[in-house]
Amino acid sequence: MLMVYLRSVIRDESAVDDLFQEAMVVAWRRLDECDLDQPFGPWLRGIASRLVLAHYRKQKTAPVMLHEAVLQVVDRHFENINLLAGDTWDDKVAALRECIDALPERQKSVIGGRYFDDLSAAEVAERFELTMEACKKRLQRGRTMLAECLKTKGVLSASGAAS
């Protein structure tokens, strides 16, 4: 459902993939801020929307706006997906936790530094005595490994869309 949301506001498929993975990691890191008695979809989309705005600021472009009626229909579909069995916050968090734990140490350390310790890529590179390019490559490989793991757990479809 998060991929559908991201694809509705961003056309660049690689940016969608990156923002999805970053949103999931940010959500994991900020889990203590989430009221688990409330639906997690709107909370997760809120995180994603802030990442989307940051993406557009970085690209110095403006988002393509959808008609309000379309957004309402899409939001209703998101809420219906939330009601499906096996699509709970706990299911997704448990899958993400398992996937992070399964990462090789090289990727786990940079992912942890970037998303759990909230360091910039430059700070992660410095912490682990890596060149900036090596750090970016490890982050990219780590996010790719997380996506593949989440696909095997059914959190992502084979096309990369959230199940």
Rank of each mutant, 00 (worst) to 15 (best):
K153P: 06
D87R: 14
M1T: 12
K92T: 01
L156S: 03
L83W: 03
K151F: 10
P39G: 02
A161P: 07
Q107V: 08
D37H: 12
S109A: 15
R97T: 08
V52F: 01
M24Y: 01
E68Y: 15
H77P: 02
V9A: 07
F116D: 12
D32G: 06
A94P: 09
M3A: 12
M24S: 01
D17Y: 14
N82Y: 05
K60A: 12
G160V: 04
V9P: 03
V25H: 11
E133N: 13
M65C: 13
F20I: 05
Q107F: 07
L119Y: 07
D17E: 12
V9M: 08
D35Y: 11
G142P: 14
P63F: 00
A54M: 15
D17W: 12
K58R: 09
T61Q: 06
K108H: 08
D75Y: 08
M24P: 02
L84C: 07
L2T: 00
H67F: 13
G154H: 08
A147C: 02
R141Q: 11
G112R: 09
S8M: 08
L96C: 03
L103K: 04
R50M: 04
V16Q: 06
L66Q: 04
A102R: 14
S49N: 04
D18L: 12
H67N: 14
S159F: 15
M145F: 11
A134S: 09
L71W: 14
Y115I: 06
L36A: 09
